[in-house]
């Protein structure tokens, strides 16, 4: 009973990214960097050590010219729920520097608690977690544009997308002042969703039937949030990470690229039982 009541109340912020509309322009990446004081260094072309909370991947269908197709896939932190909040990265952190918030469904990362063991990075199959290998250095004048809402990270800690949680905090502050405790859908939007020039990113409460994300993804909470919309999929659904970022594509090969399948496997049967 109690569990049920709790469930009703809990929000589950998530995203639906329409891959048909995503143009791969990279605005989400930069909007995120600018919003979250993400540092940069002289050479960022080695993507193995380039911090990008939001990273846009380029997918190909593997066919030769001229049948080749490409699709872009923006990848923020998936804010996995796993089973009951046991996100792959959260349960492994030895110092409780990251947690799963049951009230919002957001996976946090506390930079000042993190001591840099990087176990969470190993645990995350999405490569959504980034380590500060270098001291973040801003050119002299450039520190002026740093936002006070997100603390700059120091060398030696892990960081990742927070679904712009500070925007939630600021919106809540305003709500409190106005005597409210509930936010409207547009009061809390992530920087990437707001910036996307193609309008491909939708953000909101997956548990709220009035929110657009819920209507698009039709998540089935009884079955680990599985999407009810046949064009919607999640990355690595079969691992049971229960991510809160849903992708939408009308193309079969794109949907299949979201997960691993062994040859001749009956896809539908295997994980939609």
């Amino acid at each position: 009973m109690k569990e049920e009541g709790k469930h009703k109340k809990a929000k589950k912020y998530g995203m639906v990214i329409n891959l048909d509309e995503c143009t791969g322009c990279g605005a989400c990446m930069v909007a995120c960097m600018a919003e979250n004081n993400v540092p940069f260094k002289e050479d960022e072309s080695n993507k193995l050590d380039s911090i990008a909370w939001m990273r846009v991947y380029k997918l190909t269908n593997g066919k030769p010219y001229p049948e080749a197709e490409i699709c872009y896939l923006p990848r923020p932190c998936m804010h996995c729920e796993g089973e009951h909040g046991h996100a792959p990265c959260v349960s492994v952190c030895p110092a409780t520097a990251t947690d799963y918030n049951h009230e919002t469904g957001i996976v946090s990362q506390i930079y000042t608690r993190c001591f840099g063991c990087r176990y969470c990075m190993v645990a995350c199959p999405y490569h959504a977690r980034y380590f500060n290998w270098w001291d973040p250095v801003w050119p002299e004048e450039s520190t002026k544009y740093l936002s006070p809402n997100v603390s700059p990270r120091m060398r030696g800690v892990v960081e990742k997308c927070s679904f712009c949680f500070h925007r939630y905090q600021l919106a809540m502050d305003k709500a409190y002042l106005e005597g409210r405790t509930v936010l409207e859908e547009d009061e809390y939007q992530t920087s990437c969703a707001q910036a996307c020039p193609a309008g491909a990113i939708t953000f909101g409460d997956l548990n709220n039937p009035e929110h657009k994300v819920h209507q698009l993804a039709k998540p089935d909470n009884k079955h680990g949030g599985r999407p009810g919309n046949p064009n919607v999929f999640r990355l690595l659904e079969r691992l049971g990470t229960n991510p809160k970022v849903y992708y939408m594509s009308s193309r079969e090969w794109v949907r299949q690229a979201g997960d691993n399948y062994i040859n001749n496997e009956d896809l539908a049967k295997n994980y939609r039982h």
Partner: peptide, 9 residues
């Protein structure tokens, strides 16, 4: 570890 001074955490 990235932050040895905090490893006691």
């Amino acid at each position: 570890v990235g932050q040895p001074l905090r490893s006691w955490f």
